[in-house]
Simulated scan of single mutants.
Amino acid sequence: MENLVEMLQELKIPFAYDHFAEGESPEPPFICYLIPGSDNFAADGRVYFKLNEVRIEMYTDFKDVALESRLEDVLDRHEIFYNKSETWIQSEKLYEVMYSFDMEGLNNG
């Protein structure tokens, strides 16, 4: 998880795990990231290789291709294969661009 935080710091925009506390949400753009699950590999009856599912949700008040490119450059530099999706959240008047990928967990092998 430290590597993930270090990667997000490279963007120099606010980010938080899962959500910002009520009333503390910054103005867009900002990022929420979470680790909603895992896809671990078992060997000899134990978790042998930890693989975490990661989601990075980037929120902007307009379609920001340049910021998306910056985030994708960071993921590419760290050799992360990702999938991307996008949605308009009408109630919040925000675009959400979500990047999902798997990231190696700690203490593998």
Rank of each mutant, 00 (worst) to 15 (best):
M1G: 06
E2S: 09
N3A: 05
L4G: 05
L8F: 05
Q9G: 15
L11M: 07
L11W: 04
K12N: 11
I13S: 08
P14V: 01
P14R: 01
F15P: 00
F15E: 00
A16K: 10
A16V: 06
D18K: 07
F20M: 02
A21H: 11
G23M: 04
E24M: 12
S25Y: 02
P26W: 03
E27G: 01
P28N: 08
P28Y: 00
F30R: 01
P36E: 08
G37D: 13
G37N: 06
G37I: 08
A42F: 15
A43L: 10
D44L: 13
R46F: 08
K50S: 11
K50F: 07
N52T: 01
N52M: 10
R55D: 15
R55M: 12
R55H: 10
E57G: 02
D61Y: 09
F62R: 02
F62P: 05
F62E: 06
K63M: 13
L67K: 03
E68K: 10
R70I: 08
E72L: 11
E72I: 14
V74R: 02
V74H: 00
V74N: 04
L75E: 07
R77E: 09
R77H: 13
R77N: 15
H78M: 01
Y82H: 12
N83D: 14
K84H: 05
S85W: 12
S85Y: 05
S85Q: 14
T87S: 15
T87K: 15
T87D: 13
W88M: 04
W88Q: 05
I89R: 14
I89M: 12
Q90N: 03
Q90I: 10
K93C: 05
K93P: 02
K93M: 13
L94E: 02
Y95S: 02
V97C: 09
M98W: 09
M103A: 06
E104C: 03
N108G: 12
N108C: 08
G109D: 08
G109F: 09
